[in-house]
Nucleic acid binder design. Structure first.
Lengths: 142, 142
DNA sequence: TAATAATCTATAAATTCGATAGAATAACTA
DNA sequence: TAGTTATTCTATCGAATTTATAGATTATTA
């Protein structure tokens, strides 16, 4: 019973924070990120790969390889990371902007009070999560 | 992959809304609530029972029995229902007020930027969810 | 006491989450 | 160009949680 962020999402934030704190943008070994952030190595691999596919990280293979941050930390929104690993930010599929799905039991969305209320909640949540960035996390660290 | 409300939570809101809209506070059959809200009958049973135990509903057994709203609709906070059926409102256990748990990987909560950030997010979410009530849902319906 | 309706117990099906193993591919260096 | 290093890909597994159903039991009323 839980509405919270998955471990994967939390791990993603830890990894991003670690990479974002590097002075130079030189590749960092997966194994180094894993040991420093205490994220299980193999699990971390798939997380970093997803972040690469999303254009947030880049990687270099072979000797001297590893992962590094591609964007500026202030351009990585909390909402981006949450959507990627955790799914919708909205509390119900029927009010999700990016993952919309109608409710099976719903006769008419227009007159559903729950729908109306959850739209309000969603908009408030977006106000926060689309205005906070990885840079804010890193700043709070120092 | 989802941060959303469970079906149980959504069903609870539907059932509460239906009961809250009754003119008189006379008992309504489980089967009537089930058919009107399209919530699976047996699943609904356990939801209504939980709401009774929480003091939000009351029930009457035998002929003419059923469930009815005990509190005033404006005194049923969205946050109450979500906490009961969905768990914490905070996005991480380490920033939850009602379900606090430390993170395994965390060396020091004081210096964790993610922790700091999620406290901000939590407080904003509580501002909304503790100020909206069942009455707001019902009003939005008309 | 018969009918009605909530309550309790148990369990089954489906989905999601967290984690791991091993093979394949790419890049550097000597 | 051979060998080493490190990312990338595929595939799967177990555990936990969520959703749903079935049947027996208890309380109430007429």
């Amino acid at each position: 019973m839980s509405n919270m962020l998955s471990k994967k999402t939390k791990y993603a934030f830890h990894a991003l924070t670690y990479l974002g704190k590097q002075e130079e943008r030189t590749p960092v070994l997966i194994s180094q990120v894993a040991s420093k952030t205490k994220v299980p190595r193999k699990f971390l691999e798939s997380i970093l790969l997803d972040l690469k596919k999303a254009g947030i990280l880049n990687s270099k293979m072979g000797k001297g390889g590893g992962y590094y941050l591609l964007r500026d930390a202030k351009d990585v929104l909390l909402a981006d990371v949450i959507r990627m690993f955790n799914g919708p930010i909205a509390l119900l599929p029927c009010v999700s902007l990016n993952y919309y799905e109608p409710c099976e039991e719903c006769v008419d969305e227009e007159t559903c009070g729950l729908n109306a209320m959850m739209i309000e909640v969603r908009d408030e949540m977006l106000k926060i999560l689309e205005n906070k960035t990885l840079a804010d996390i890193i700043n709070a660290e120092e």
